[in-house]
Amino acid sequence: MNQNEIIKSAISGDKEAFRMLISILRPTIEKTVFGMLGQCPEAEDIGQETFIKLYHSLDKFRFESNLKTYVTRIAINLSLNELKKRKRRTNLFESNVNITEISNNIEFDNQTEFMDRIKWALKKLSNKHRPVIVLRFIDGYSLKETAEILEIPVGTVLSRTSRALQYLKDIINMENINEKY
């Protein structure tokens, strides 16, 4: 059975076909959700919600587009909602940690530390820039696919990617991060 047949079966109410779809799309959504939210308990909930939303909107799916980009769009939107909720909670209960304090205390002796730093820096990216980095470099989507998922022009994807990379580089070199971002 090819993917379109599985989708059609799932639309007609075949739960096992939908289970197959989840298995096919799960690795993509794992990358997207963990890339967007980092390691946290909410990530799995967002992943589940993504597939529940997909299940309820599957009959609206047009077969000329790719299901992978369709479901990734749902995951990105749900992750962005979660980040907004998180930001509201942070504003209410926590003070922002000074970025320079953390940065000056970190030296990259090994790859793990560098990886942790990159993960931390990714979390610091704005809601505009983070999805672009996640989709382009973690999920490996093309420029056109990224533009389609985020519903923005290709030129905007280009400029956001450059700016996000600049930020990630700055956070390592500590070049006036707080002023720029």
Binding site: K15, F18, R19, I22, S23, R26, P27, E30, K31, F34, G35, Q39, A43, E44, G47, Q48, F51, I52, Y55, Q111, F114, M115, I118, K119, L122, I133, F137, I138, G140
Partner: peptide, 19 residues
């Protein structure tokens, strides 16, 4: 580093819980 970042995985019961 970003490209090779290993994603955490959803639990084994992921599909069952969704259904």
């Amino acid at each position: 580093t970003i490209t090779n970042m290993v994603s955490n995985q959803f639990s084994r019961e992921f599909e069952d819980q969704i259904l």
